[in-house]
């Protein structure tokens, strides 16, 4: 683990120490021209942030909603029936999600919006929303089930409806567990490479809208790593992106720890 961190840090920082690229250029320039010694990664960073935010805004509430349903509303038989279905959704390989996005969603978006290719932020965002669902569902279900039954009884005994109880008591009481569910959903979304790469359009430009093609950190690595020559600025900047992803993952894990600690 430490070896992995150090090695990736070493590779990721070569861009700045060997190629002497200004880290600010890497982080904030939208112009990705590694051959011209100007590997601005802002497009990819924003691409990752946008698709993740999209997935979070759509998949987050949806996933928590299903988690609420499974823990509070579903008849026990239906809940046990849905568990394996959700596990299968986890098990479907990301390339198959990508393939579905490619063959089903992209044409649909092309026809319904007049977008040229159907590839872009919107398509990638929808695919990711579905992909983070199982994570968010099962973790939020667990979080809500962990809330003691006396909370629910206390609220119902005051004459609250089930929805009032869920909204005003159960969800706040499960806050830290729900935070963890959302953070791990973010982790899954920001780290997903292939499904996004297959539908985001892969062009290193800032997107002009939801329908415009762009790229993300992971997808750029997938797209260019195969052709990157060892030791070039391109090669180094791809490793810098990987290192950045690693740092984000670590930050998210620290976030999880914080959320868990605050609750206890």
């Amino acid at each position: 683990m430490a070896a992995l961190m150090l090695y990736l840090a070493y590779m990721g920082l070569q861009l700045f120490f060997i190629d002497h690229v200004n880290p600010l250029v890497f982080l904030f320039s939208p112009n990705f021209s590694p051959d011209a010694h100007h590997p601005g990664a802002l497009v990819f960073i924003l691409g990752s942030v946008f698709v993740t935010l999209f997935a979070l805004c759509v998949g987050g509430p949806f996933g928590v909603g299903v988690g609420v349903f499974l823990s509070q509303i579903a008849p026990p038989k239906l809940a046990t029936l849905m568990k394996p279905a959700i596990e299968i959704l986890v098990g479907i390989p990301s390339v198959v999600y990508g393939w579905l996005g490619l063959t089903l969603l992209a044409p649909l978006i092309r026809h319904s919006t007049g977008s040229l290719t159907g590839f872009g932020l919107l398509t990638a965002g929808i695919v990711l929303s579905i992909m983070i669902l199982p994570t968010v569902i099962s973790l939020s279900e667990d979080a809500l089930r962990a809330v003691h039954i006396s909370m629910k009884e206390g609220s119902m005994a005051l004459g609250a409806t089930r929805w009032q109880t869920i909204w005003s008591v159960m969800l706040p009481a499960a806050r830290s567990g729900l935070t963890v569910a959302v953070i791990l959903g973010i982790a899954r979304a920001i780290g997903e490479a292939l499904a996004v790469q297959m539908v985001i359009g892969n062009s290193a430009v800032l997107p002009k809208g939801l329908l415009a093609p762009t790229a993300a950190l992971t997808t750029e690595i997938v797209t260019d790593m195969g052709s990157a020559q060892e030791g070039t600025v391109l090669y180094h900047s791809l490793f810098s992106m990987a290192f950045l992803l690693l740092l984000i993952a670590m930050a998210l894990i620290l976030g999880v720890r914080l959320a868990v600690r605050r609750s206890s």
Binding site: A187, A193, I221, M225, A242, A249, I253, R257
Partner: peptide
């Protein structure tokens, strides 16, 4: 525990690059 948790969150593409560095290069 912390290492295991962090390891579990690392994107698989990043892990792929690590494999590339170690085993391939």
């Amino acid at each position: 525990q912390f290492c295991a948790e962090s390891l579990a969150t690392i994107p698989s593409i990043v892990m792929g690059l690590f494999g590339l560095l170690v085993f391939v290069t």
